[in-house]
Design a protein around this nucleic acid. Sequence first.
RNA 1: GGCGACGUCGCCAAGUGGCAAGGCAGAGGCCUGCAAAGCCUUUAUCCCCGGUUCGAAUCCGGGCGUCGCCUCCA
Length: 495
Amino acid sequence: MTIRVYNTMTRSKEEFVPREAGKVAMYVCGPTVYNHIHIGNARTFLSFDVIRRYLMWRGFQVTFVQNITDVDDKIIKRATEERRTPAEIAETYTLAFRSAMDELGVLPPTRQPFATQTIPAMIDMVKRLIERGHAYVADGDVYFSVRSFPGYGALSGRNIDELESGARIDVDERKQDPLDFALWKSAKPGEPHWPSPWGEGRPGWHLECSVMSEGELGLPLDIHGGGSDLVFPHHENERAQSEAATGTMFARYWLHGGMLQINAEKMSKSLGNFLFLKDVLARYPAPVIRLLMLQTHYRSPLDFSDARLEEARAALERIENLVRNLRWVGEREPEGSGVPRPALERLSSAIEGTRAKFIEEMDDDFNTAAALASVFELARTANSFVSEHQGDIGGVERAVLHSAEELVTDLLGALGVDIAPETASSYPPDVVQVAAELAGYQGSDPQEAVRALLAARDAARSERNWAAADAVRDGLEMLGFTVEDTPQGVRVIYR
RNA sequence: GGCGACGUCGCCAAGUGGCAAGGCAGAGGCCUGCAAAGCCUUUAUCCCCGGUUCGAAUCCGGGCGUCGCCUCCA
């Protein structure tokens, strides 16, 4: 079985064959650290986190490199506004970025180079481009000559002449062609600067990704990823620089994620309709946000809203309940005499079928929505099995149900969704007080207190004293517990 | 103006030639002392018009609508 990916370069799905068997060299454009990242940035990083995790799950050794762009016009602008140095701005938002990614559950990159620590290699690439006739110096600036690179436009599907006629490009006298872009910019007073053969200056956008990806991974990269708004000009220019400088293919597969929208419009800082990731994380747990993203294919536009977050929350609960139900059955002593063989075999084959379907869908350009559907179908099958046969669960059945539980957590884990285990250790201390009032509990241990409350409720129920029983349940629910009476007895969930 | 993507149930969404996945929400029912969880039942000639085909949501042409890129953008 092979994995197929949609390659922007060829506009088609292709079989994924890495340059070295079993290993994947992956580069995803990281943030320019001039502000907190927004939920649209987060979508892209989440999409590539899922791709990376899935490739790992499928047995590839993935080297994942993501840059931090810590020198840029926007950082300088922000620094001026806040009367801080660009380095301070960059540091502040680098730390914010890392902690937000961590909270979102995005795996840290294998390596995360900084643009400012790669300046000599950038200067070196600019030199190579000048030597090869792909760049020229003008007044302390260095420009890349797009006409010197025959494949320019191939990635984004445009040609130079059309771009020029469409032109909203500022005409700069120093450029030989309006589409030429800066490799090196001479520094104005007060701007960060580094010495170079062309005078004090700083690198242009695009250059850092070319240099860092090559430096960390070597060429060609297997996967180069980013949001679809980076296709032009950023990735087009990166590719032109790198291939012109090295004569080697830059990236084997170009993957681009769809835009996140709010009210059917792209969210962007310039439109002012953006949400910071940190603010969304303050209201919804990371797995809810991740599940919302997973329910749409990574290349499609995704409309983001509170309503969709609520839906995702409910959908995640369905999966969590499934796992909880399976664990609950698995932890009981098997008492039943067994389930008819055909029913058990249907369950077993559903479990195997789910794994196969999940892999088939994910192998097809990371179709997370369809892969998730296979898990939901298993939920129905396993839940009905339990509800139909709950009195007959024996050792064999228990083992099969346990394998279903393991499969669900494994598959969701492959997508980066951790199904939270029950954490009995973190019961709130207030429960002791409630237990003292309602159950005459004398001790100080929250877990014992809960047990005492449940025993008191049980006693009340057997006397058909519903008021007393419900008082216990209400007391527990006020503290965040959910009390459920199952055919196997009462269980309590704390979240 | 140029290039590109998309239009599938009330909402979200998968599905690129052969009986239209899944999630959320709604309705009815089962289970329960009541709940919770769960189960069952229930809602789609796939934007419109033509064409190709034995057969089209899926391919082709036209129309309408939405969005993205072309300028910093994930």
